[in-house]
């Protein structure tokens, strides 16, 4: 089974995250990291490959720093890494990114069919959660999204993937034959930490770099020029004013009640 895991390099959520005058996330602060939720995707792919045999390719599209994200995937145990690196990618929206990742998966497929594409449930910078469904649509394969549990059964008629997912109002079980895209939630597993052996082994693994020209994608179709939305303004939210911090002296419950009534909150 060949599995491609799509990952993103994002600003560390514990760092001071900012948006530049161009309306884009500032990505060169040196605080970049593999999107935490993508670790669940890598873990899910590694477990599937360990259980059913096969190889795991980690794929990212992004600036030079983004190679750190796929390297982390290699350290965790992935076999190969692909980095789509092109200046024209800057400012891509989810649809540009989906088109680029789909084209890159197409190139990976030249060395053998891809059975599963695995992603995280969201990237902790944009948090739109749209990439998995957009990518499945671009690839024309089944989408099994927001999996908190994955079950793979290999049969004589092909491989069937079944996932359980928790939605706002319901729990669902979805199923499809491969090829399919699976996105996993942070409930799906506990991602492993790269061990020393993994870190050493990753040093010997090469990262294949593709440009947009390799993918046959026109630069104008992606990046800011291809984006279907434009940021008009971005401002840091002002701190809340008139904040009060008290220590309970035996009256804090009554203070709380009075506060709610006085501020017409109840």
């Amino acid at each position: 089974m060949k599995i491609v895991v799509c990952v993103k390099h994002v600003p560390d959520i514990q760092s001071e995250r900012t948006i530049g005058d161009d309306g884009r996330v500032v990505r060169d602060g040196g605080d970049g990291t593999l999107n935490e939720l993508d670790e669940n995707a890598i873990e899910a792919a590694l477990v599937l490959a360990e259980t059913h045999g096969g190889e795991v390719v980690v794929l990212t599209a992004g600036p030079a720093d983004a190679v750190d994200a796929v390297r982390r995937g290699l350290q965790m145990g992935a076999d190969e890494a692909v980095h789509v690196l092109d200046d024209a990618l800057a400012g891509s929206d989810v649809f540009g990114t989906a088109a680029v990742l789909a084209a890159a998966i197409g190139l990976v497929e030249e060395e053998g069919p891809v059975d599963l594409v695995v992603t995280g449930m969201a990237a902790l910078d944009g948090l739109t959660s749209m990439l998995p469904a957009a990518l499945a649509a671009e690839l024309g394969i089944a989408q099994l999204t927001l999996a908190s549990a994955i079950d793979v059964v290999e049969g004589s008629d092909g491989t069937r993937v079944t996932v359980r997912r928790e939605l706002d109002h319901a729990t669902e079980v979805l199923s499809a034959m491969t090829p399919a895209l699976v996105s996993v939630t942070d409930q799906a597993n506990e991602p492993r930490y790269p061990n020393f052996k993994g870190i050493m082994a990753a040093r010997k693994k090469a990262v294949t770099t593709f440009t947009l020209a390799d993918l046959g994608i026109e630069p104008a179709a992606v990046g800011s020029s291809g984006s279907r939305t434009r940021v008009l303004s971005a401002t840091a939210r002002p701190a809340r004013e008139n904040r009060v911090l008290i220590t309970d002296d035996g009256e804090a419950g009554r203070t709380l009640a009075t506060y709610l009534v006085d501020n017409k909150l109840v």
Partner: peptide, 27 residues
């Protein structure tokens, strides 16, 4: 959470909440 709370109370929730409930009922 106290960095973003409009009203922050350092205290035991098992004391503060029941007292608040009682006071809200009274008010």
């Amino acid at each position: 959470i106290f960095e973003i709370a409009d009203l922050g109370i350092v205290g035991d929730l098992f004391v503060v909440l029941p007292q608040a409930i009682e006071e809200l009922r009274r008010l």
